[in-house]
Each structure stands twice: as C-alpha cells, then as structure tokens.
Nucleic acid binder design. Structure first.
Lengths: 65, 65
DNA sequence: AATTTATGTAAAGGAAGCTAGACATGGAGC
DNA sequence: GCTCCATGTCTAGCTTCCTTTACATAAATT
C-alpha cells in the first residue's frame, strides 16, 4: 500500500515532526509510514485524511497488481 | 470508530462467513469488526470498500465527539 | 428430536502498528 | 570549525489486529 504523504507534506512545507504533532503520533511513526515500513491503522489514516482535508483514497493507494 | 458493515451485509444477504471469504480473513475477524472489538487494518478496510464498492468514508465513520 | 446454519464469544499465539530513546548523516547558517 | 534541523534507522517493549480452535445459543429444517 503506497501513499502520497511525503509529497503532500512537502507541498505544505511541514516537517515530519510538524505532521506527527498534528496527528498525535511520534515522528518515527510518520517516518515509518512515509518510507513504507508499515501502513497506518485505520483511525490514524482518518486523522491523516482530516489533517490534509482529503479522502483516504486520495492519500493511500492500492498496490498495483 | 463505528462502521455500517452489519447493515450493508444484511442488504446483500451475506453471512459473516460469506464476507470473510470474499475478504480473505477469518469469520471471527469479520465478527470482531462488526461488534466493535477492533478496527480493521487499512489494507483490509480497502478490501472491504472494494467488496462493497463504496468509499471507505461511507463504511467507516469517525467517532462522534 | 436431531441436524444444520448463523452468530457471538473466548483463549493462546503470531504479525503488524506504535512508542521512547538513541545514534548517524547531510544541509543551512553562523 | 560548530550547531541546529530534518531525515533515516535501530532496538526493546507494548498494544492492536488477525489467526486457529473451541464452545454456546438461537433459529430453521428435516
């Protein structure tokens, strides 16, 4: 499951730390999600969607294939 | 995090077992999600959305408050 | 009455998500 | 040079998600 977090964060000029604080998670979690180590939980995915004001489907992308 | 799984499943007249097989998870997982024991992972939420052909946001609802 | 189906629940174990703490690197600015 | 930042990574530990196995109940069927 890929995501557009890094790009969307860059568009807003937020650091991983900035985003982590808005989401209420650790900087390491944001980093791990961005670098593809794991996917966020569903509740966290909703918070991410809220922060970026976008539907989940526009942030997280089904794996091709 | 609430969800409309039970109703949507009833609308289609699927058993928990039917849905579990379509999703590739155990019947207990479907039951646990429906009865609110826990939320699905993000990848599973996407599969659920695919099976019901609805956006995630129309199936899973942010907790009010 | 006996069987089948659907649902709910529980326990134990493995896999995935998340934490705090620490360390390394590269870039920007003194 | 040194010092911040921002990012990436690692570890140990805890919580959440998901599994198999199993048991209980109610409803429908035979």
């Amino acid at each position: 499951m890929k995501n557009r977090l890094k790009v969307m964060r860059a568009e807003r000029d937020w650091s991983q730390q900035d985003l982590a604080e808005q989401l209420g998670v650790s900087r390491q979690s944001v980093n791990a999600i961005e670098t593809g180590k794991y996917d966020p939980s569903l509740p966290l995915a909703f918070r991410i969607a809220d922060v970026f004001e976008l539907p989940i489907e526009e942030i997280f992308l089904r794996d091709e294939a």
